[in-house]
Computed example of a mutant assay.
Amino acid sequence: MRKVALIFIITMLAFYALAQQPYDEVAKAVFESLKTGNYSILEPYLDENMKEAFNEKSFNALREQMISKYGGLKSFEFIEEGKSGKFALAYYRFQFEKANVTLRLVFSQTNGEYKLSGLWIQKVVWREKGIPLPLAVGLPILGGILALLTFYTLGFKKIKGAELILGFFLVAITLFIQPVIQQAPFLALGIKSNADITAKGFAFTAITAIWLGFIAGFFQEGLKYAFMRNKRLKEALFVGIGFGLGEAILVPLLQVVQSFILGGLTVQLTQALLSLFERYIATLFHGGTTITLAYAYKNGFGRKALVVLSIVHGAIDTFASYYQLTNSQISLIMTYGTITAITLILLWYAIPKAKVEGEEGKVVW
């Protein structure tokens, strides 16, 4: 019996040794540091380049993003290993409260020891089952359609298809060109992610949000103004509605494509309903701004209206950008509160002017 027991113990120890990976100790340090927020646990396992690139600020920014998005960290396990040139790759599944996140850890060997040279999020699998994809995409689109119906009930029953198409075309231009302008300085600085931005502190994050917001405000309102000159007010309204409908359709579709590239899309019902409201109020906002721009141009204060609306739009998008960077709930509330208040003011100002305008004249664009 003693010999059998000894053989069993030796066998178990051999299996345990084989199951252990040479970089498990580093992975454990990654886990403990992310779980506790203690960077000093991980720092000794970083190579020199990683210590410089992934300093304590960068670590804290990444951790805050992951915890706020995925919940508390519970456990981790090894999945597989690989190789890329002189680097060893190891994939570990980190189990958070809301999702299983696969991290790709990149290792280099220094004096026979494995040091961490890189850390990447490879895949995210949410624990909670989201709503069906068609519903997740359809609810924001429904928000744009409801805005169109709102204007219809306000008396604008003659839908102008050409202007809707023009608005859709303008938002397509916006979605392709505006991000290039917004991201240019960050690419020049070597900043590749939200974590890189928030790692630089509150001041840099706030300045980034202002930059993103005001580029959006001035680009979109400037583009709309260029096409609103000499437009009749009702024509201008439907260009704005087309712009809002374009966002309601194209933005969710682009998010679906992006999410599939990054590892799938999981949308909760609450998120989808917020998106529905966001697209609804945004379409109303765009309708109000285009009427206002057309009216201001006709009455000799077009440039002043352009500047004011661009600043207002920029302020709204600044709150939205800060939320996207930090997941701050206060920023989210400020975004929805501000755009709702501004939209109501715009509609109160613009709708009566568009209603009393005559119907003579024909659109040409």
Rank of each mutant, 00 (worst) to 15 (best):
F107W: 09
N60V: 12
L116I: 04
Y114V: 14
S68P: 06
A90R: 01
F76R: 00
Q95P: 02
A90L: 11
G112H: 00
Q65L: 14
N100Y: 02
K115M: 12
S75M: 06
S68F: 05
F94W: 10
R63K: 09
I67T: 01
R93I: 03
A61F: 11
Q122V: 04
Q122P: 07
G118Y: 00
Q122K: 15
W126G: 10
G118I: 01
A99D: 08
Q122G: 10
R93K: 13
V106L: 12
G72P: 13
R63Q: 09
S68I: 06
A99Q: 11
G72A: 14
E80I: 03
F107V: 09
E77L: 09
G71S: 05
F107C: 11
E80C: 03
Q109E: 15
Q65V: 14
E64W: 14
Q122H: 14
A99Y: 05
Q95F: 08
R127P: 00
A99G: 13
V125F: 05
L89V: 08
G82Q: 07
F76D: 11
I121Q: 07
K123W: 05
F59R: 01
N111S: 12
T102H: 08
G71L: 00
V125T: 09
E128K: 04
Y91H: 04
R93N: 14
G118T: 05
Q95S: 10
S75Q: 13
M66S: 13
F59A: 01
Y70Q: 02
W126S: 14
S68Q: 08
E97C: 03
L73M: 03
K86D: 15
E128I: 03
F76E: 05
K98C: 03
W126C: 13
K69R: 15
E113Y: 06
Y91T: 01
V106P: 10
L73W: 05
